[in-house]
Amino acid sequence: MGTMIDFAAAGQEFQAYSVEPSGPARGAVLVIHEIWGLVPHIRDVADRFAAAGYLAVAPDLMGLAGLDAVLLAELGARRNDPAMRAEVQPKIRAAMAPMNSPERAADVKAGVAAVFDYLEATPEGKDRTAAVGFCFGGSYVFALAMQEPRLAAAVPFYGHAAHAGNELFGIACPVLAFYGEEDSKLMIDLPDLTAAMAVAGVDFRPTVFPGAGHAFFNDSNASMYRPEAARIAWEKTLGFLGQQLAPQ
């Protein structure tokens, strides 16, 4: 069971869910939530990392992003009803609109950086801090990797790697990325991203799961969850972190 700790960034206060590792620490993991916020599923993921031996901290970035977590949770639940999906989708897009603001994106990046700095200053995380994120969080894992040379490992699940110019050249750590084959937008972008990563000299390791779409890891979303893909992705993630965060 974790505890909530306080942070501040971009002139705003926010909190994060922190869980101590079980047994000797193997490193630290910054866990970045989906667009739905710091929901029980994300806390459970942080708990799983702690059980595997990592100090895990999952920040609530919704306020920094200008998003209403309660409204999005309600709309997300209604979207899972096929009869209401068409009606709810425009409302979800409208609720997510603040996320498209460059100023809000900068605020979220500042919040992520504040939590990373916190972890990097701990005995568990010094030179052994990784970032794992999902959807919205996966995109900000890519963003953190581009701007933070101390990041030891990056694991974006179905995230969008928004980049311009030479930003990919800033990635100094290996990147293990997961995608669902039916996630058409990201699948369209993946070949160009893979090529750009190669040009930048990034150790980029994409894994695509057949029969899976967006949010395949989220076991609280019955319509999208794919248990076998989620199991394999989790095993790959722990193996990757075990290699990358091992003491030198």
Rank of each mutant, 00 (worst) to 15 (best):
G11V: 09
A16K: 01
V19S: 05
A28E: 02
V31Q: 07
I32V: 14
E34G: 01
W36H: 10
G37E: 10
L38M: 09
V39T: 14
P40W: 15
I42F: 09
R48H: 12
R48D: 02
A51M: 11
Y54N: 01
Y54K: 01
A56H: 07
G63S: 08
A65H: 05
G66V: 10
D68C: 03
A69R: 11
L71Q: 10
G76K: 13
R78V: 04
R79W: 10
A83V: 07
M84F: 05
E87H: 00
P90C: 07
A94F: 09
A95F: 03
P98G: 03
P98T: 05
S101Q: 05
A106P: 08
D107G: 01
K109C: 09
L119A: 00
A121W: 00
P123V: 03
G125D: 03
G125S: 00
G138W: 04
S139G: 15
L144N: 10
A145I: 12
M146I: 02
P149T: 12
A153D: 03
V155A: 08
A161W: 10
A162Q: 13
H163M: 09
H163N: 13
I171V: 14
V175D: 08
S184L: 09
D189R: 15
L190E: 05
A200D: 00
F204N: 02
T207H: 15
V208R: 13
A215H: 09
A222V: 13
S223Y: 06
Y225F: 14
P227M: 02
R231H: 15
I232F: 09
E235V: 06
E235A: 13
K236I: 02
G239P: 01
F240S: 09
G242L: 08
G242Q: 05
A246L: 15
P247V: 14
